[in-house]
Design a protein around this nucleic acid. Structure first.
Lengths: 192, 192
DNA sequence: GCAGTTCGAGAACAATCGTTCTTGACCGAT
DNA sequence: ATCGGTCAAGAACGATTGTTCTCGAACTGC
């Protein structure tokens, strides 16, 4: 019963995520959202309740569709080097990749619900890297969760910096960092 | 001639920097500023021209008073490990330490002047770390600026994460990361 | 085909935003 | 002592914020 809705909620959330990822929460107005999505104000409030509601669903969907799968792929990597490069590469691309980043920087410290979501995302990434570290036999194995936290932070920081820096310094830097904890010093062909 | 001003511009900028560092640019209203600083709206606009003007001077002063000196201290460190821990410790503390961070995350990508300032700050830190790396003889020496970028990003990301995480995971993680590129593998007492 | 319900379009809401104006009070130089 | 100029205090500005209301059109179940 009733008139069926003619807009795709999936696409709406996706467009909203892209806007939020680019301009942040406060930097994205409801007018921006309705013009970019193409949906009417009333419908948007009918479906999502509020701007914050739309933001929360966009963030949760970002976690479910991108961040957590990425954490799974990272955890399945055979060694820390490939885990780190995979994390950096995947997190650098994608239109809404900055959503988690901006949420942490801008909104998490004053919205507990957002903080819970970002903590979930970053926690998953850290645990994935920690798992790979623990399974490795390099010098990184002993460092444990602390090192995992630092590496995740590095990926995060590179992404943040690449929002203005010229371009693509991310992958190179991540590779350099990965190479740094790569070699079990024994099998490194320096003098042989 | 004229009535002398009765408020301390130095303190005003400092208070403003603290507010901006905590709540971001968009998250800090002019009302918040005038009540926190204790100065009148008119005086504030007379001296700084606009909210953005106050923000820019606060950011520049933050660079001159804290970031660039920190870069100098980092560059003077005797080895990469101490350089990195010094950077992490210093950047974690201080009331307005998040100013550069928030500026990069929130404002830099749409305000070229802010982008220039953040680029200056991060560039100085990266160059300092790169210099220490180049002077070192560990495995990090060859990696060059890419690794410096990654390490700076790690400090940045740790600070960003510590805005909501429980506390003090930063120093431990930074130390773990530093320890990871510390040992010239030869003089590590593993089997001797 | 009619009733009931939901959707889409746009005006309108109060609140807040950054900014400016008006009004006296105060001070230093003449 | 008086005048010129800068100050502080607060009201007020238009613009924009997020949100809600009103209205007519569109569709499904009886």
């Amino acid at each position: 019963m009733g008139r069926p809705r003619t807009f795709d909620e999936e696409r709406a959330v996706e467009s909203a995520a892209e806007l939020f990822a680019r301009h942040g929460y406060e930097g994205t107005s409801v007018d921006d959202l309705v013009t970019a999505i193409g949906v009417h104000r009333g419908s948007l409030y009918k479906v999502f309740g509020s701007k914050r509601g739309l933001y929360l669903t966009a963030l949760r969907r970002h976690l479910d569709r991108h961040v957590l799968p990425l954490a799974g792929r990272v955890a399945a990597a055979p060694d820390p080097v490939r885990a780190l490069t995979a994390a950096a590469d995947a997190y650098d691309s994608g239109p809404a990749a900055g959503l988690l980043l901006l949420a942490q920087a801008e909104t998490a410290h004053r919205d507990p619900e957002v903080a819970a979501l970002t903590a979930e995302g970053f926690g998953a990434l850290e645990e994935a890297i920690a798992a790979v570290l623990a399974a490795s036999d390099g010098p990184a194995a002993e460092a444990g969760p602390d090192l995992a936290r630092a590496l995740t932070a590095a990926v995060l920081g590179l992404r943040l910096r690449s929002r203005t820096a010229d371009a693509a310094a991310g992958p190179g830097a991540a590779r350099a960092l990965a190479a740094c904890l790569a070699p079990p010093p024994a099998d490194r062909p320096t003098g042989e």
